[in-house]
């Protein structure tokens, strides 16, 4: 009975577009959905540091290197904002990392693709961060307060990421024929995996129903994907690159672009561990976690010593 009344009050709050805060009563399913979604989001930020990290020592100029370092530091920061917000739901940081390591928690499939050229670094900023922005702008209005506040903070920082990537692509596309070819090749390889970032079509998405009802998500996968496509086509045209989708064309009647079919078989393979870099990404994360253990231990020991000395003094 008590539960029913609480659920009623909870849903009334959701319907009134009020935010849910950590100490408020919430249905277990709401909490579970949020933990899954926010932790996946946090892990994506952190794993996403790896593909670009490979290019720090190979950046073509000091300017490019400084920018890349700043961007990667931001991604780590975004991961931390999101872990903090997830921890307010009553799960510890240790458990979150453990779930990443044992495969219970996922991260975005896009980071299991290799970054083969400098143009790929540009394409990641332009497309991958561009797609993330579309998703995150929508999530600023999510019903869970701490998640919403993390999104507001992240969106403020994300725009630099997309612009630096588009600048790289623009420079290459307007450079030598070889450079232009490199930019086109990066677009060809990363376009479809970027579209998969928004997740399965609405009709096939297991989690969409309740997430929309409880306003965890404010727009569906297909709506967000469409917005991203509609924004991005013109950006490609302006720098003279061709979208790798022969079926992509403007639909004046619907006021949006029609696009070709997404290869969901590939998506499933990569989600389930069979992408080009899944193992490498996870091995690296485990290695960094294990090799950092002594730092955590040393800092803990130092803090304990400080407390002891304070007591003696």
């Amino acid at each position: 009975m008590e539960n029913e009344k609480q659920l009623e009050q909870f849903e009334a709050k959701i319907n009134a577009d009020s935010k849910i805060e950590p100490k408020d009563w919430m249905p277990e399913d709401y909490r579970k959905h949020l933990i899954r979604q926010i932790s996946q989001h946090a892990h994506s930020e952190v794993i996403g540091m790896q593909p670009e990290g490979n290019w720090i020592t190979r950046a073509p100029s000091l300017r490019a290197k400084l920018i890349l370092l700043a961007k990667i530091q931001d991604e780590g920061g975004h991961g931390l904002y999101l872990y903090s917000s997830c921890e307010t739901l009553g799960i510890s940081r240790e458990e979150l990392i453990e779930q990443l390591h044992n495969g219970k928690a996922k991260y975005s499939t896009i980071f299991n693709y290799p970054v083969l050229t400098w143009a790929d670094v540009g394409a990641i900023g332009w497309l991958v961060d561009g797609a993330a922005i579309v998703n995150q702008i929508s999530l600023q209005r999510t019903s869970y307060g701490p998640y919403s506040r993390a999104m507001v903070r992240i969106c403020k920082e994300e725009s630099f990421h997309q612009r630096q990537g588009y600048e790289i692509m623009g420079k290459l596309a307007l450079g030598t024929p070889e450079q232009k070819e490199m930019a086109q090749d990066a677009l060809n390889r990363l376009w479809w995996p970027t579209l998969m970032m928004f997740g399965p079509h609405d009709a096939d998405s297991a989690h969409t129903g309740k997430a929309m009802k409880w306003k965890i998500k404010r727009e569906t996968n297909d709506e967000l994907r469409q917005r991203f496509i509609d924004k991005t086509v013109q950006q490609a045209e302006i720098i003279g690159l061709t979208m790798p989708d022969p079926e992509l064309k403007w639909n004046a009647e619907k006021n949006k672009y029609d696009h070709g079919k997404i290869d969901w078989e590939e998506f499933k393979r990569v989600v389930n561990g069979d992408g080009p870099c899944n193992k490498k990404r996870m091995d690296n994360h485990l290695k960094a976690h294990d090799e950092g253990a002594w730092v955590r231990e040393a800092a803990t020991a130092y803090a304990a010593k400080q407390v002891k000395e304070q007591v003696v003094a």
Binding site: E87, S92, R93, E94, I97, A293, R296, E297, A299, T300, A303
Partner: peptide, 9 residues
């Protein structure tokens, strides 16, 4: 526990 501690909040 110590090894994997993420420290106080």
């Amino acid at each position: 526990n110590v090894k994997d501690s993420q420290w106080p909040l």
